[in-house]
């Protein structure tokens, strides 16, 4: 197989978890909630997916475990950011640390005697059934919550000006709960994708920053769907290039590839090229008395 094909296939494979996680994150940020805890939700999903698949012997049961665990992690974040109006950045970073500590602790207790983790095999090019399902979920979110549907507009309204949205009768808190839980589900699916379709095991800190990369893709995509998807694809290829660069005869320090997504996002968000507008109410908690 030529190195270019390998690069393209690797890029697509690695882009799938990014697309999933950033699809949820994009909707959530549009509604005004910055979930830095995507990383933690992914890691939780990956761990629960591996545990579930290993316990039951069925990778689909693993996916179920992952979704349930992701929902729980998201519920924690939603209670903190929406109901308790806690700082979204602090709680996001703390939730990631909690997920890292929790899954590492759990792995010490559970994955002791070389338990095998049944996973998915590729069926469509480099994609597994789970990967295809993931892409379908991304497409569904893109269609149902675009700026051209009522739901999508409600999401944007909650993120642009929560107080005004509330005055028009939109259930701001419910919308924000919904988007955070959605992020939990898609991130957990992304984590399960990594554990069950890529690595076929759980190792400490399996996600290793992919969740943050998903948040970065949303920023680089300037809170718009297609640019975000493009950023995910590009970040996927940049990750794949770390493995295939030698085959292509490229001598690039790995570190340059590692930092490229963040530099791109920095340029995109700085407004040096074109304009970038974050949702006005991003990270601003809402409660009805604050007028």
């Amino acid at each position: 197989m030529s190195a270019f094909v390998e690069l393209a296939e690797g890029g697509v494979r690695l882009a799938v978890p990014l697309l999933l996680a950033s699809a949820g994150e994009l909707v959530s940020e549009r509604a005004g909630v910055l979930n830095l805890s995507v990383e933690g939700m992914m890691l939780t999903g990956a761990f629960a997916g591996a545990v579930g698949a290993s316990m039951t012997g069925s990778p689909w049961a693993g996916v179920g475990f992952a979704l349930a665990a992701g929902l729980l992690a998201a519920l924690l974040q939603a209670v903190l950011s929406v109901t308790l109006r806690a700082d979204q950045i602090v709680t996001g970073i703390a939730a990631n640390a909690l997920a890292l500590g929790g899954t590492t602790y759990g792995a010490r207790l559970f994955f002791t005697d070389g338990r095998s983790v049944p996973g998915f095999e590729p069926v469509l090019g480099p994609l597994t059934v789970l990967g295809c399902a993931g892409l379908a979920v991304v497409a569904a979110i893109g269609l149902l919550l675009s700026r051209r549907t009522g739901y999508g507009l409600a999401v944007d309204a909650a993120g642009a000006d929560a107080v005004a949205a509330d005055r028009t009768g939109l259930p701001v808190a419910a919308i924000r709960y919904g988007v955070v839980l959605l992020t939990g589900l898609t991130s957990a699916l992304a984590g399960a994708q990594l554990a069950l379709a890529e690595v076929h095991a759980f190792t400490d800190n399996l996600t290793a920053g992919v969740g943050y990369l998903a948040v970065v893709a949303v920023i680089a995509g300037r809170w718009r769907a297609w640019p975000t998807a493009l950023a995910c694809l590009f970040f996927g290829i940049a990750q794949a290039l770390q493995f295939t660069a030698p085959l292509l005869g490229l001598h690039l320090p790995t570190a340059v590839l590692v930092m490229s997504p963040y530099l791109i996002a920095l340029v995109a968000v700085s407004g040096l090229v074109g304009s970038s507008r974050a949702p006005a109410g991003l990270t601003v908690p809402f409660h009805r008395e604050s007028r």
Binding site: L80, L84, T91, A94, L98
Partner: peptide
């Protein structure tokens, strides 16, 4: 006991204190 326990306790502490902001407010 896995050393990650300390990380868990630290992050829980952070979450509790950050989450309790509403009480102070």
């Amino acid at each position: 006991v896995p050393a990650s326990s300390v990380q868990i306790v630290q992050s829980l502490l952070t979450i509790f204190i950050a989450g309790a902001v509403i009480l102070r407010r």
